[in-house]
Amino acid sequence: MSHTAEATIKEINGISVYYEWHPSSPGAKTVVLLHGFLSSTFSFRKLVPLLCKDYNVLNIDVPPFGKSGKTKKFLYSYKNIAATMIALLDELGIKNPVLAGHSMGGQYVLNMIALQPHLATKAVLFCSSSYLEPPGRLLSFGSQLPFFHLAVKRWLVRSGGVKKNLKLVVHDQSLIDEDMLRGYMQPFLDKQMFHGLGRLIHDREGELRPEALHKIITPCLLIWGEHDRVVPLAVGNRLHGDLKNSELVVLENTGHLVPEERPEEVCRLMKEFIERQEP
């Protein structure tokens, strides 16, 4: 975090939301960053210092991840999380931001602009999660059992833990160092996270249908990794077709973790997109 950044936790819509506010020059536009599944504000650590040169940056831990709340009383549906993020922007007096989301964070952004079509001037979607169906009935039922959070924890350990998952999301394996491992491991050290995760798995509804995507009018920039193994490029092509006011940029030799793997290129693409005058 830069020395001028403010880290704050606010109660919004019945849950505590942690965010980092990085102010730029007076009158600068604001970019709002929403991370993906099993991640935190850490995933934008390389992008934030670059964006700060030209924009205010609001980097949020989306519940139940990072330092945000993990209460089991909160409804972790896309729609309710989107409404909570909108309420946070209202609380902070942020008008006409640029919304940017990575992976599941992209689906939150799409839900926000579907709920409030004039909320954002533009949106940037990094390898956005799209077209997922809701969890099946068995998983939905299982997630309500008292020890489900332990099953989630066991599944994460069995899947190879943080290092194996990073190898899946990063194309250039040499980027995986101790800093990166520590940062992505951090959310898992809080056992309450697994309770929130169980609720999220239960509450998650299906992602926006094509007919809802067709109605989105906000200009959208889609940035995809050529070798994304989590949300493949085919999904990006489909999303580009369904979002009528969108453009798609594919980064070569890049995996799913676009802001981590290509921060300079991502910042340049975002800046060009943000500054471009729409007809």
Rank of each mutant, 00 (worst) to 15 (best):
G27Q: 10
A28Y: 11
K29W: 04
K29T: 05
T30C: 10
V31G: 01
L33S: 02
L33T: 06
L33V: 06
G36H: 15
F37G: 06
F37R: 02
S40I: 05
S40R: 07
T41P: 02
F44E: 01
F44T: 08
F44C: 02
R45S: 06
R45F: 09
R45D: 06
P49G: 11
P49I: 13
L50E: 08
K53T: 15
Y55V: 09
N59T: 01
I60A: 00
I60D: 06
D61Q: 02
D61N: 01
D61T: 00
V62Q: 04
V62I: 08
V62L: 04
G66N: 07
G66V: 07
K67R: 09
K70Y: 11
K70A: 00
T71P: 14
T71G: 15
K72H: 08
K72W: 01
K72T: 15
K73G: 12
F74W: 14
F74V: 12
F74E: 14
F74Q: 15
L75W: 10
Y76V: 08
Y76P: 12
Y76G: 07
S77N: 08
S77G: 05
Y78W: 09
K79M: 05
K79D: 00
N80D: 04
I81W: 12
I81G: 05
I81Q: 00
A82P: 09
T84I: 03
M85Y: 11
M85A: 10
I86R: 09
I86T: 05
L88N: 10
L88R: 03
L89V: 10
L89G: 13
D90A: 05
E91P: 10
L92I: 13
L92S: 14
G93T: 13
I94F: 14
K95M: 12
K95G: 07
P97G: 15
V98R: 12
L99C: 07
L99N: 01
A100N: 09
G101S: 04
S103F: 00
G105D: 03
G106Q: 03
V109D: 03
V109R: 11
N111G: 07
M112Y: 00
M112Q: 02
M112G: 03
L115Y: 03
H118P: 07
L119N: 14
T121P: 09
K122V: 09
V124K: 11
L125G: 14
F126S: 13
F126A: 13
S128C: 14
S129F: 01
S130M: 14
Y131N: 07
Y131I: 01
L132K: 11
